[in-house]
Amino acid sequence: MHKYSSYKTYTPYISKYDPCPPMKVKSYSTPINLYLGFQPMNLPQYQAREALQKGTLWPALYSPYEKVKMRKPLFSKPQTQPELQPEEEEMD
């Protein structure tokens, strides 16, 4: 069973004729409400102060929007272009 991650990454096709430097790994956000559906009852709760800071009362629903630069590539599926493994971390 895949572990929940708040973003997913993929490697776009890189052509020889691309005019700009290629973006080897791109990412998109996948917040928890995509998977959660109807919120179950009696989920554990934050304390009041932490809830105010985190923006939600339930840790299960906490979904920070990480900076795109901070997103490390995560490849759950086998790669279709193995030889194009991303050497450095640069992303958009």
Binding site: F38, A48, A51, L52, T56, L57, W58
Partner: peptide, 19 residues
């Protein structure tokens, strides 16, 4: 403290709308 308790009440209110 008032802000915190207001936020918790707001979250509970929204939760109770659907539950």
């Amino acid at each position: 403290q008032l802000q915190e308790i207001d936020f918790v009440l707001l979250e509970l209110n929204l939760y109770l709308d659907t539950h």
